[in-house]
Design a protein around this nucleic acid. Structure first.
Lengths: 185, 185
DNA sequence: GCGACATCTTGTCAATGGCAAGATATGCTC
DNA sequence: GAGCATATCTTGCCATTGACAAGATGTCGC
């Protein structure tokens, strides 16, 4: 997990993860090839195996990184529920590759302790912000939290899939803000 | 598109699509192998190519079928917005393979006319039902329609990903109904 | 400097997608 | 019903990939 330095390549592990983010962001996880990543990094075709074992291992590392990035992003959004939702959507758009992998557990080993812990941290960041407001204004905080998560996750997913009509505009953050506000009216 | 009958296999095209639904439903689109489908159907490894060209062609046919199934499901739900949303979630759960492919355009050829037409039909079924109610109760029907679509799509996606906590329960339809009702309060 | 270890390379194999060419059955025309 | 065009399917092939095994190379502790 820690990035030791000074080997042959320098920091192959991080280089491979960064290249994987590029490839997945452009063409999706299906297009990911360990040999292609190795070529991009200028190493032999078997080098990635040492760091990640296999393709699922690489995607597992990517998922952990993604949940940690999401935790950070949500933490920076503060306690305002609207801004928390906007931050969720912004994370999905800015870290498309991570987001797409995180919520596709068949691509990686979602049951390893590191993933479980990272997902739990992200869940706490999300649920904590939601419950602060929801508990004060509703008789069903769990239901409200699930509704909030669903609406931001759905919007982000539809946006990334290119499924939304042109009328929504070019700015995902503004559109998300408008949609989320619907929950408070 | 029409299923002609009476050849060697009988109805290979439909058999292959059905097998693909099984595989994707169990292991996701990444695990799909044309040769595996051919083995399941008892034909040679190159037989699928004649019907679908390549893997993207098969998934394109699956996406078209999915949008048509969704159109039917939404049509059967009537004009009630709550039931429309529940039908959307039920479709996603009952036709997991179709749903997962439909909203992953990098897996197939989303720009071919058949896909565009099928998606358009599904969009009309969704938007028509939403606008009937939204227009009467809101000053921003487009925003409301997007919010409704986002919340049901997000709930369905999170449910399929296994991301929801155990407290949500075992019945997706009941949980969805509860969440969607949040939009009307 | 020396040994233990992490890192990376080379070599190999089975599986897959995709293409080309040929075999077989179906249906249409007369 | 015979012959031919066509749809359907098979066999054969090649490049790419994931995964594994074994070896080479660099790094670090002592």
């Amino acid at each position: 997990m820690t990035t030791t330095r000074g080997y042959h390549h320098g920091d192959l592990r991080r280089t491979l993860l960064a290249a994987a983010v590029d490839v997945i962001g452009e063409s999706g996880p299906v297009a990911l090839s360990l040999r292609d990543l190795a070529r991009r990094a200028g190493v032999s075709h078997a080098a990635p195996a040492h760091h990640f074992g296999d393709k699922a291992g690489l995607l597992t590392a990517l998922a952990v990184e993604g949940f940690d990035l999401l935790t950070d992003a949500l933490g920076r959004a503060g306690d305002d529920l609207l801004e928390l939702g906007v931050a969720y959507v912004r994370f999905a758009v800015d870290h498309r590759a991570h987001f797409e992998v995180m919520f596709r557990p068949e691509l990686y080993r979602a049951d390893v302790p590191e993933v479980v812990a990272a997902r739990s941290r992200a869940g706490a960041a999300l649920r904590g912000g939601v419950s602060a407001l929801a508990a004060a204004s509703s008789a069903e905080p769990d239901r409200d939290a699930l509704a909030a998560w669903s609406i931001v996750h759905g919007f982000a997913t539809l946006w990334l899939a290119g499924a939304l009509p042109a009328g929504v505009g070019e700015d995902p953050e503004a559109a998300a803000r408008s949609v989320i506000r619907r929950l408070f009216e």
